[in-house]
Design a protein around this nucleic acid. Structure first.
Lengths: 183, 183
DNA sequence: CTTAGACCTTCCAGTTTTGACATGTCAATC
DNA sequence: GATTGACATGTCAAAACTGGAAGGTCTAAG
């Protein structure tokens, strides 16, 4: 149950936020780490409230509800951080395709990897640019947000390099018999 | 719907396999790419059969059913490879924790990253050892399986290095005022 | 002969995720 | 005064995923 802790964690760090606020955070700062839809966020807020981990601290203009973490909520976040060990999710649609690329003509397969390398390069550059632009504060969210952003940059860089390597590997196999016994 | 294409893809490549065979493949060769439980695999086989993408080609000893792809199935796999563009799944429990590590004492946070780095190092070494051990054939599954295995190795290596870097960053912030103006 | 272990499938109950649809308020602009 | 757009919440059905339980068959070793 990670969505629950993502929501809870944001509320604890922000010390008060509405579902709408959280949605924006999911879209922006948590985008590379955990995604969530509206229905998930609002649903989870209701559950967290029912379980006494958060509470409605104030109500604002448009039916806005500002949630704040209870002591039980802060304890639970801490417990999750310390005790629970996440199993790394091993699911990757891009890689799944690579696995079956042998079903295409070699030239198409290599084109796919070249495309992939280009896309990853762009993403890496995008994050690198972001790193330059953003002025970081001294708060926790800034510090740890910076760490995850750097992770994203490294991830895309790794991926780009791998795609280039893989493309070269395919090239080697596609036309190998050229210099096998050329003295 | 990627599970569907993972199952379909394996059946196409193997040119005939039972649910049991597929399960083993998911556990071994597809482990770093896509995971699936028994109920998912058998369920998907039923659906694929109903949709005419695969068919029971033979029945074996223990109620074993050997599935084979139909022409429609092969077309669908190809269509998926060429047309559909996967959206990279952005969900990572380990990173999610890092995002909230500011809730712990700095020393605990650093310990978490050190642990993480160690775990990633072990995994990387595990895959590296596997690369040495395995004797690769000349078939497609071998070639492309080799590519994804190398991806896994690079992924864990990147992750280890990042965790070490992040730990150092935290250390810098934990005790920064030591040599600011030490001539 | 018997028994352990690999082989093999089916079903299910509960949870999570997805992707809408529905509803309404407030602030600023035209 | 009307319209647009950001703000804000809520509900739902369908799909996907989890984690088993249950039941049965063949083979080889002891």
């Amino acid at each position: 149950m990670s969505l629950r802790h993502a929501v809870l964690g944001l509320i604890v760090e922000l010390d008060g936020a509405s579902g709408y606020d959280l949605m924006k955070l999911f879209e922006i700062s948590l985008a590379n780490v955990w995604t969530a839809t509206q229905s998930q966020v609002y649903g989870e807020l209701a559950k967290l409230t029912a379980d006494g981990l958060i509470e409605v601290a104030a109500e604002g203009p448009r039916g806005r509800k500002e949630y704040r973490a209870t002591d039980a909520g802060r304890d639970e976040l801490r417990r999750w951080l310390v005790e629970e060990q996440p199993r790394p999710a091993r699911r990757d649609g891009v890689l799944l395709k690579v696995f079956f690329l042998g079903q295409l003509e070699p030239e198409r397969a290599r084109a796919y990897l070249r495309d992939s390398a280009a896309t990853m390069g762009e993403r890496r550059d995008g994050l690198a640019a972001l790193q330059q632009e953003v002025t970081w504060g001294d708060d926790n969210l800034s510090l740890y947000g910076r760490l995850t952003l750097e992770y994203g940059r490294r991830f895309f860089a790794m991926r780009k390099e791998w795609a280039e390597w893989a493309e070269a590997e395919l090239a080697r196999h596609a036309a190998p018999p050229e210099d096998a016994d050329r003295a």
